[in-house]
Design a protein around this nucleic acid. Structure first.
Lengths: 105, 105
DNA sequence: CATACATATTGACAGTTATCTATGTGTATA
DNA sequence: TATACACATAGATAACTGTCAATATGTATG
């Protein structure tokens, strides 16, 4: 679950969502992303680190440049997780909860 | 997009993910959730507020109790959004970006 | 090797967040 | 109506986060 929390935190920022949107059509280097957003280079670097640590984005060094792309497998894993958590399932915490207030009328 | 950020922030906490898991099988009141987690009542109240403000959870007052349930429409909306942001689409920021470093070898 | 360029790291600062204790509000019941 | 109970709000505090300026690291090229 720590893994998912890291992902949700990575997605909890406007600029990082914009970065993902930018990467949705293909690879970009950090300087491209910097041109698109109105942020300084260290700030971009910081956001890319968070996206990479969440495994949502993969960065590969190509000469002077870092080339970033979306990790679509991780995105799929995330949507699956969201569905799983919110849907009724056999193995679930709630099975062990007996309602102390009888809300079922 | 502010709406989505609010949702991702709501999901960026271990206890709130546990609360959603608890609610996945049906309605629960705040006291049930409090019994399940090891947190004080005001902290539970705080988390429920955040989940409600994100519209992930719906709370209804029934007598003394607040009865909470998952808003599955909002969950669906979220997974759709994640897919949309990360997938190649016609209308996209990245279309207006011309790579300054020629990364396409 | 020296210089220029792309990115990373450090350190600082303001704003936000999770948690608690203390207290307030509203509702059922004796 | 008084009391007990379920939940909300206020205020405090420690920890975390987004941003920047300054600086370091690594790579290509003259």
């Amino acid at each position: 679950m720590e893994d998912k929390i890291r992902i949700f935190k990575a997605l909890s920022d406007k600029n990082r969502l914009l970065i993902l949107d930018m990467l949705s059509c293909g690879e970009l280097c950090a300087c491209d992303i910097m041109d698109g957003l109105n942020l300084t280079q260290p700030t971009i670097s910081h956001h890319m680190k968070i996206l990479q640590e969440a495994n949502l984005v993969i960065g590969v060094k190509k000469g002077k440049w870092m080339v970033y792309s979306i990790n679509r497998d991780k995105v799929k894993e995330l949507t699956s997780y969201i569905k799983e958590v919110t849907s009724n399932k056999d193995k679930c915490i709630c099975k062990s909860i007996k309602s102390s207030c009888s809300i079922e009328e």
